Simulated assay, not measured.
Amino acid sequence: MSRPEPMDERLRQAMQRVLLATLPGALALLWFQGWGILLNLALAGLTAMAIEAAVLRLRRRSLAPELFDGSALVSATLLALALPAYGPWWLTVTAVACALLFGKHLWGGVGSNPFNPAMLGYALALVAFPAHMSQWPAPHAVGLLEGLQHVFGTPPAPDAWAGATALDSLRLNRSLTIDELFAHNPAFGHFGGRGAEWVNLAFLAGGLFLLQQRVFSWHAPVGMLASLFLISLIGWNGSGSDSHGSPLFHLLAGATMLGAFFIVTEPVSGAKAPLARLLFGVGVGLLTYTIRTWGGYPDGVAFAVLLMNLGVPALERLAAARQRRQPA
């Protein structure tokens, strides 16, 4: 009879699978947004490891195995993939530092955080630096040398390469029909945002790999995607100028698939019981659509996740009460 693996080893293996699953999405982002994605990943990874080592030293704890369990690197990777590709270097460093210090170590380290660290870092950067967080590059618009200037130098005005995303264009639209937006607005692709639809499909492929590997259960991703699909179907009124977009548009725009398979499945800040996980995902989907449609930010995944993190204790109590009511 085989001996069960230690918890640290199981965590490390799970984090390795998550990093592997981000590869299709990262490659799709690299293709559409350019080298800035690699710069983000490198800066975020180095910052995460430096902060982890410094905090462990301050707490007088040995670097192994916590420094190498992969949890900090996963949070940094997800945050780097969510940030604008050519933001200044300090934006990535600050966001990762906030994610790990305020989203993880402030609560005692891995396994104790009530909020998703990556989404907390993203939300803090969005609130503190809204101008830099709105400069999303158009597909294939920035070369390597120009990208390095934007990240490490004093960049020129981004009007030539940055523009509104499809979600932002739809939220601010007052006169054009959906068909006209897709036909004439360069931010729109075939079904969702230009480039974003393929990036979302790539993250979907990575998420399905994680499901097949049983890194997490289906409850939270299905809950989020199903509720986002249903509420966008209810709010969709065809191609009118007041339309909020089709269900397929919302599934293939913004950070939908990254959120569904890599964010709401975070095991510590998310729910534990199957019913609570399902309801957690449903809540994230509903809040994401609400923020996208009527809120002040074009994509609401980060805020939706953080709000639902606050509701996890209530969801767990609801799931436990339902379990007690079931006949033995």
Score class of each variant (00 low, 15 high):
E5I: 10
L11F: 02
A14P: 02
L20C: 14
A21W: 08
L30N: 09
L30K: 05
I51Y: 01
L58P: 04
R59T: 10
R59V: 11
R61M: 15
L63V: 02
A80C: 04
L81P: 02
V93G: 04
A97W: 13
H105S: 10
L106E: 03
F115D: 07
N116Y: 03
A123R: 07
A125G: 00
F129Y: 11
P130R: 01
P137H: 01
P139N: 13
P139S: 09
H140Q: 12
A141L: 12
F152G: 04
A157V: 12
T165G: 13
D168E: 15
D179W: 07
E180P: 03
L181W: 05
A183R: 14
F188Y: 01
A196Q: 11
N200R: 03
A205W: 06
R214Q: 05
P221F: 10
L225K: 04
S227L: 09
F229K: 01
G235M: 03
S239P: 00
S239V: 03
S239R: 01
G245W: 00
H250Y: 11
L251W: 04
A255E: 14
V264H: 08
L279Y: 04
F280I: 14
V284R: 13
T293L: 13
G296R: 09
P298A: 04
A304S: 08
N309S: 03
L318F: 02
